[in-house]
């Protein structure tokens, strides 16, 4: 499930952008050191393939609903984790741009949720060890697809929760997301296994050529430094959070207090806003519009205090908005007529 711009706070968005870009940069470096030159067209074409394959829906047996391929696991199996991650990131980029699926700020979250866990956790830590002796291939594919998507879904819940835009309680959201993604993960695993098996049966040499030969091994230090660190952090905090959420209605607040030392979540975007605001106050050319009213609005950052909404302000706001929009219309049309008249 794609995270949307409107559900995340700028802090969460920027943070995951940084994480995902870091992942891409690291993978790119790894690829550059190891790959054959052939890899670039293969990666591009496989990206296009997954994209095309995602566009075809199929019916899920016994449920009557329809699904489509995600492709993360498939890409990791064929290309190895680094190239798989880079290709998945580019698929999500094209989706964000062309289908408005997700969003620009949420793209970092989406690359992380749908690319990272599959390529750097499920593939090297579950799939690879399980298929070592060419046994359990089906099981390996299934479990790693499920785990990859479960972690992704959990990550969506965390991002939503920490953004604080949605009022959906953490536990409710978790209970909504994880089971749905269990089903999606099983379907993904079955389909991925089916495709890989079909290809290896009808054209074994094709996959041998690309299968993990170029970038199959994940560097141990990378796992140690980033993956395991992050995994442990997520699982422990996440596990504690959800355990308390389920066993004790107030547990969530309690554990946040433990983690952050105060009952509210840190709201980074507000500090950012504050900095911008103080800069603004210093350079403002309209001293009349100080942030007195804005400050009262922002003071609500804590959960208890709500902003005071003054109907008079709202009315003038509606009026002003109307004027601004009409002005844009006018400017647009004027510019357009000027352009048309100009001989070109």
């Amino acid at each position: 499930m794609h995270m949307a711009d409107a559900l995340i706070s700028p802090a969460v968005g920027v943070g995951f952008w940084a994480l995902s870009l870091g992942g891409i940069a690291y993978s790119a470096k790894k690829l550059k050191d190891n790959i054959e030159e052939k890899m670039i067209p293969i990666m591009g074409i496989l990206g296009a393939f997954v994209f095309a394959a995602q566009m075809i829906n199929f019916t899920i047996p016994a449920t009557g609903s329809s699904g489509h391929l995600g492709g993360g696991m498939l890409l990791s199996i064929i290309l190895g984790p680094y190239a798989g991650f880079v290709v998945m990131a580019s698929i999500l980029t094209v989706q964000a741009l062309f289908f408005a699926d997700g969003g620009l700020l949420a793209l970092g979250c989406n690359i992380w949720n749908l690319g990272f866990y599959t390529s750097f956790i499920a593939y090297p830590l579950i799939y690879k060890p399980l298929i070592k002796h060419n046994k359990f291939v089906f099981l390996a594919t299934l479990i790693s697809a499920v785990i990859g998507l479960q972690l992704g879904a959990f990550s969506v819940v965390l991002q939503t929760y920490f953004s604080g835009i949605s009022e959906l309680p953490f536990k409710t959201f978790l209970l909504l997301m994880q089971p749905i993604h269990l089903l999606i993960g099983i379907v993904e695993g079955v389909v991925t296994y089916g495709i890989v098996k079909y290809v290896t049966m009808s054209k074994p040499e094709i996959l041998e050529h690309s299968l993990g030969n170029y970038s199959g091994k994940v560097d141990g230090t990378f796992i140690k430094k980033i993956v395991i660190g992050f995994l442990i952090l997520t699982i422990i905090t996440g596990g504690i959070l959800s355990w308390f959420a389920s066993s004790n209605p107030d547990g969530l607040e309690w554990s946040i207090e433990k983690v952050y030392g105060k009952p509210e979540l840190p709201e980074k975007e507000h500090t950012l806003t504050n900095i911008l605001k103080s800069v603004q106050e210093k350079i403002s050319i309209f001293p009349d519009y100080t942030f007195k009213k804005d400050e009262s609005k922002d003071a609500e950052a804590g959960e208890e205090k709500y902003p005071n909404i003054d109907l008079g302000t709202t009315l003038s706001g509606v009026f002003g908005a109307f004027i601004v929009l009409s002005l844009t219309f006018l400017t647009g049309f004027i510019l357009k007529t000027i352009k048309k008249k100009r001989p070109s």
Binding site: P41, L46, A48, F58, T59, I60, S66, G194
Partner: peptide, 28 residues
């Protein structure tokens, strides 16, 4: 018949994957 059954989808996607890899080879 409405929709694509899973097993047909797998074949179709598998075929498309083989063709794509062949194409990548030609492009290279």
């Amino acid at each position: 018949k409405k929709g694509l059954e899973l097993k047909f989808y797998v074949k179709l996607a598998g075929n498309l994957l083989i063709r794509s890899l062949n194409r990548a080879e030609r492009i290279y």
